[in-house]
Design a protein around this nucleic acid. Structure first.
Lengths: 208, 208, 208, 208
DNA sequence: ACGTGCGGGACACCCCGTTAGT
DNA sequence: ACTAACGGGGTGTCCCGCACGT
């Protein structure tokens, strides 16, 4: 295969994935329409079927190749080798809120959470892939908190494992709340409260 | 209309609503099947369309008459006239986790959140009803916290409004996390962390 | 339900079955087209789906309610209480050949055999229903032959069981041959030979 | 073209034909799937369409080059220059039943008859090729019987033409019956009866 | 108040064939 | 000779809602 063909292939495949991500993000998996995907990608059903075995398989690849990398990039990479996880977590949170508010993404919800809530109880294939991402995310936070405890930037009496579970859950809930309420303010306010919570995890300052 | 007729009417209507709640809870609104509802309710489609204008209207009534009352009973009533909101909130949370773990409800997610995540961006009618419930819930917590501040059982330097938003969001996220992971442990651990957060809202003990 | 409704129901159901029989007879089950059936029956797909769960189930009912009764009426009933099975069998064979030749049915083959050859190896549900009809047919012949042996109109040294199997097989093959060759003559000639075979089953005349 | 090239060509073509025969034998022509053929042959669709104009043409070549030669070898060649056609026919029949029972081929039916029953009324190209094979077969038997009459091994008062038609039809029907019933016994029993029929074609022994 | 036959349409699937390339 | 991306359409499924009945 030539380079041109390979890139054409990746191009078409990528267009399908992008269009599928958009469609499923907007209408959910069950509500998503294959014809819309085909139209938006500017291809035909034959091409789609050539690359993906069906709607379900397409959605699973969207999770693996679109949603997964985004989640890693946004939530996990910034915490790697963090010396002060509380600061880094707060920066992440504020950064993500700022972006979602200005882009309007807060109105559509978290792509990962959307698909999770819809499909987890219905399809084990979806559930496993989504759960892996959330597990990784929780673990990344727990590791950062543990290293923060060692480095003295985090209180020693908290459970990194439980705390990580709460932080992830809170962010799922915050984005979901903002979506339901169509309220950027709500996102900001709850975000502030979450940052306030993270502040309580700092070691008691020696003298105050 | 006689009393017997009226109660027969309520009986049929109630059976439809119960069956519809079950169906939408399990498969979502878009994935829910009217024929299944009809079968489970032991009635016919004619009866369903006699009482409800369509699938959408049926689901809206389910929110109003089934999910709404449950939410009020579980989350809002226990906080009314609370003298110590932190204690009451923690009791609520632990109670709900215990129930959901033993009933297996943690596997299906929160009925309100499920429908919220699926339908809020797609249909304004759904969104408004769901948002009203969440708003009420947040307000109930905020009022309780405010009264706690006045009563000296809650720190004075926190924002009841923001805190309420976080508490509600956290619980949305916790139940959703447990659903995705099929893990009761995760629900318990994140619940513990949430209770730990609530403990940080207590006024600094006079001497420490 | 009123009589009018019931008969309307039977009417629609019957129209679908008749149209389906025609379609499957002409194009086979796999090649048969549901849209053609709907058009020919003058109904809609909704009505078809109301009465039958799908293409497969429709075809199975066609076997039970159309092909089965025809087969019984043509091949089995005339042999009941036969005192001279060889004569009755030959009359059946000649009668059926005459009818098929004049109606042109010899060009389309035997409805039962068509569906049998196509679907038996692919679907156990089809196979069982078809096999039951052929079994009944063979048994009807075997019983008649046995009773002919007792009555002295059939040779005592033949196996009614094996002979019945051959007679049925021969008729399957004769109709099939005529279909392939588009030749009424072939059907007549092979039918003559089959009648000749039946003649050899007569007891040796006492003196000759 | 070199010898190596030619043989490579024949190799690919042959693999396609073998795979196509298998597929059409199992699922019929209409139910047969080109992708399965391509996969089983270990080639690509491009190669298939390079050698054959389409699904239909492929199937026609399968008849000509696979099914036809098999039929000739099994049914016609053994009868050439037969001095005692009844003995040779019976040997053929018993041999073929033994083989089909032990190989399980009785469950799949006769490849020629399968395609004949499915496609003869739908496509004249199929019909003509299939009919030619059956005609040849009938003629081979008729010629052998005629020569048997001349040689004194067959009764003089039978019609070789009609008898040949019945013998071929009976074998079509026997194999078909066994396929429908999934019964090797049925094949054997009907085969016995057919051999019994052939025995009646022997000239009456001078005195007994 | 409630049953039932039925309308009409959309949706996912999947499949045969072509064409630009090497 | 052979490849692989791709075209385009037909097919079965199935579902929501209506229009009558009684």
């Amino acid at each position: 295969m030539t380079t041109a063909e390979a890139s054409a292939r990746e191009d078409t495949r990528g267009k399908i994935l992008t269009a599928a991500f958009e469609e499923f993000y907007r209408h959910g998996f069950q509500g998503g329409n294959i014809n819309h995907i085909v139209e938006r990608a500017g291809i035909t059903k034959g091409a789609l079927f050539h690359y993906f075995a069906g709607k379900r398989e397409l959605a699973l690849v969207v999770i693996d190749e679109i949603i997964g990398p985004i989640t890693h990039a946004r939530w996990m990479h910034p915490l790697e080798n963090s010396s002060n996880p509380l600061v880094d977590l707060k920066r992440e949170i504020r950064q993500h809120i700022k972006e979602d508010v200005s882009s309007g993404a807060y109105l559509q919800g978290c792509p990962l959470n959307n698909i999770a809530q819809e499909m987890s109880p219905l399809d084990e294939g979806f559930r496993k892939r989504v759960d892996r991402l959330y597990s990784d995310w929780r673990q990344a936070i727990a590791i950062a908190l543990t290293s923060g405890i060692k480095g003295g930037t985090v209180r020693k009496d908290i459970s990194p494992h439980d705390t990580a579970a709460l932080v992830v859950a809170a962010q799922m809930g915050i984005w979901g709340s903002a979506k339901n309420s169509r309220s950027a303010d709500l996102m900001i306010e709850a975000g502030n409260a979450l940052c306030g919570y993270l502040d309580t995890l700092k070691p008691a300052s020696p003298r105050s």
